[in-house]
Design a protein around this nucleic acid. Structure first.
Lengths: 328, 328
DNA sequence: CTATATATACTCAATGTGAGTATAAGTCGG
DNA sequence: CCGACTTATACTCACATTGAGTATATATAG
């Protein structure tokens, strides 16, 4: 049981980034478009990792995002390493096996305040897209998404069948059947079930089907979300799962907020990311008892009603409390 | 912002496994000894990943553990991918850059019930070691470990100094200074602080110091734990952190338990893994209200007191509850 | 039978959480 | 200036969860 060299298959190792931004109440994800092919697909930004140029993955990631999209990113964390055979190529393609280390990053640059950044972003060919276009069933802010009952669940139920225990039970947990409550963190579970059930366009591509065929005709894209190349949508699902989970015990929201904000602003942001509606009074209580913010003393009257106090993030909580987050 | 090949540095990708077992009330980790060098160090089992032979990382891992240690592993999950430059070689060494995908696995094979497995394990050169020999400060079952106050904390405090805010605050959170309570999940945080403060033998090696020199003479190994090769102790710290965290919302303990057990057995196992003492009555209440187990109807009188009921794991909870664990 | 050890049952206070009502302080159209 | 409307903020209450303890049951050892 000792080390050996992997001489067999040529391997390329790359970094994939799920870079999250925010505009108003819309969570965004940075994507690049591949326009030199007929079936043009969105992709996450990705590039090779060269250990000689960058000492760590994270430094490499920051450098390549800065260089290529002119974007400064704040919080960065490793998500998962995606290495399944065939994940980065059609079965008939040749070439290296590509292993991708997926990262989640948060950036305030989605709504650039200076010209320079805006132009750099424009030039790069990258653009921020609302993340719910890829996962429309994940946004419950306006109530239970229609396509669940009208489209996705019937097909999923049929796929699960009567006799297969395992599928039915996974379905129950992921999609909150029976009396269970919808768990906003199970984004990846839901994606994987939809993928297995053939409701995700990428599943057909991965099986080597022609792009337009019987399987993909079955899919109603307005219900099953926009496709991405390779397994990038799976990486994005992983990113959203992680972000939603981590919001609850780390003050990550503030990476997407300006320096001053009202409690309603803060709540709307959390709601946008979590994809669900929160009880206003309890949200306020939570933020206050956890001492996550402090009043600036000024107020904001943007909204026609009673002016709201402005707050700023209390960075000290990071050093005081063990798990400062918004467990809602 | 498009894909490019990493032609620069030759990269080898490998799998590292933190394989956890249990004997009585001692958590174990599978290690291999490197005996062809003078400064013989423990290592985690690791090997190359060949995507042509195995479709996924996980299948590759299971195969190589089965083949080389004759060990069957149950639960497997990806931990983290370790890719820092220099992580797998002394600064002066030549050779590929090695990226390791770290995995956590649980196995009942630490106390093999059949001859065959025991022999296979013996042959492989691998052996299960108590994990607290690598992290003696993590075992609080017999109270607060002595070396914290007598050795580690004084040096850490000195290292943090007076003026450096950041170090002092990290120290406070990781080691529960002031009124904070010890967080059993911050194993990695603590390891990293000790590493930075020069209290971990590997830190000296990574700086390229000779093996026996001033820095390592300062270290009292009975207090700072046994060293491992490369960054394997960091990987192990990551594994313990993850396992301790996950115990609280997934029924992982049962992967290490036999088919029948008393509630005290179960509690002792959780205590061994979490490294701390639990309130007996409340533990029982927790297990019962969460319906994690069901009585077998039989009792066990091994212990001289009132005989205890025997229980088995209720696999159905996996399908009923969203987060079935033992949040203690 | 008694001391001792372990297992199991029950109590109680403190805290956290979901959901609601009540009140405050602005805007806007007349 | 008024009343309708909008948004912000304060307070209440029932209920579940949790930490910590006391009380009781059932075995073994001598």
């Amino acid at each position: 049981m000792s080390m050996a060299r992997s001489d067999g298959t040529p391997i390329t190792i790359g970094l994939s980034a799920a870079i999250v931004g925010l505009q108003k109440e819309t969570p965004l994800i940075l994507t690049v478009r591949e326009d030199d092919r007929a079936d043009c697909k969105d992709m996450l930004p990705f590039g090779p990792y060269d250990p000689l140029r960058h000492r760590t993955f994270e430094l490499g990631l920051r450098a390549f995002v800065k260089a290529q999209a002119g974007l400064h990113i704040g919080h960065v964390e490793q998500l998962y390493t995606f290495g399944d055979r065939g994940r980065h190529a059609r079965p008939d393609d040749e070439g290296d096996h590509v292993v991708s280390v997926g990262y989640l990053a948060l950036s305030r640059g989605a709504a650039p305040d200076d010209e320079e950044s805006a132009i750099a972003l424009q030039r790069s060919g990258a653009s921020f897209q609302p993340w719910y276009i890829y996962f429309p069933w994940e946004d419950w802010r306006a109530g239970r998404p229609k396509m669940l009952d009208s489209y996705l669940l019937p097909i999923l139920q049929q796929w699960a069948g009567k006799d297969d225990e395992s599928r039915g039970k996974r379905l129950k947990l992921a999609f909150a059947l029976d009396d269970l409550t919808w768990d906003d963190e199970r984004v990846l579970d839901r994606y994987e079930l939809l993928y297995e059930a053939g409701l995700i366009e990428e599943a057909a591509a991965d099986r080597g089907d022609a792009v337009v065929d019987a399987a993909s005709e079955r899919i109603d894209f307005s219900c099953s979300g926009r496709a991405m190349r390779f397994d990038h949508r799976r990486i994005l699902a992983t990113a959203i799962s992680r972000l939603r989970a981590k919001l609850k015990y780390r003050p990550l929201v503030f990476e997407l907020m300006g320096p001053e904000f009202t409690l309603t602003d803060l709540q709307k942001t959390v709601e946008a990311l979590a994809g669900r509606h929160l009880h206003k009074q309890n949200f306020r209580r939570l933020v206050e008892t956890n001492a996550l913010v402090e009043p600036t003393g000024t107020t904001s009257a943007r909204t026609g009603g009673r002016p709201a106090q402005l707050f700023r993030f209390r960075k000290e909580v990071l050093l005081e409390r063990a798990a400062p987050g918004l467990r809602v």
